[in-house]
Amino acid sequence: MEHAFAELPLATFSTLSSLGAGAFVVLALAFLSGSLGDSLAGSPEKLKKIDRLAIIPILLVGAGFIAAMFHLATPQNALNALNGIGRSPLTNEVVVGLAFMVVALVYWVVALIGKLGAGARKILVSVAAVLAIAFALFIGIAYMIPTIPTWNTLFAPISILGYCLLGGGLFGLLVLQAADALKDISTGPFKAFTISLSLIGAAAAIIGIGGQYLVASGIEAASHQVAAAWPWLIGSIAGLVLALGLAIIPLIRKPSLGIISLGCLVVLCSVFVGRLVFYALYITVGV
């Protein structure tokens, strides 16, 4: 696991960014499924509260970017990372991530000053959700380097997409429930969509991390890392399953801020451990 602990800033970045961005997928579902907008028409305070709390996932992504800075030897030149647009997968990842941040911040600021109409809200939050999913995929794709056989697989983006949908979903629910809005939208397609999204997310996360591990298991040169990562892999998968339960229970039973908060904590830890497993499996085709 030595390589994993050498990449703590990147593990933190990929965890916080995918979870924070994913919250906007659930927020978009909430506003697009109609019932929330309708039921909140009569209680603008709740809507205001949701908007205020939407800064939590934005701050998570921001914290992710700050963590990534600690990985750089010259962070003050970080903007140079935009030079490789279209060519370097790392640049593409940063560009999509920044695009998400800009849209999410514009959404948040315009909503807070009360200038966000229902139509514009739906468009902005949807764009943020699409960018969140793209960001998650691009984070994973950036690791698909042909000379690193244990990373160069589609399981890399699949796992991050899973973290984004399952973990981001929990943070989205956290925002909604902290504004006491979940009970207003527990009817209608929102519930079914969010449960499906959490299931797909958990499946993608577990298939992604498990598939990655199986690919590495087939590579003789990685046998030492594979053996060392085993208990961490099991811990991460167990946490992801628990987080799935904590995401679904508040949707099929009475919404509870306690359960959702616990879910956020569990998913944060399990995704972080999953990322450590990913970095621990690093080897190259060479020396």
């Binding site: 750089l72 030897a73 030149n77 970080a78 790392l90 380097i145 690093y282 190259t284 060479g286």
Partner: peptide, 14 residues
């Protein structure tokens, strides 16, 4: 120009 992200170091099989 380099920011020291280490991507080159990770990728180079030599």
């Amino acid at each position: 120009v380099c920011i020291g992200c280490g991507y080159c170091a990770l990728s180079c099989p030599y």
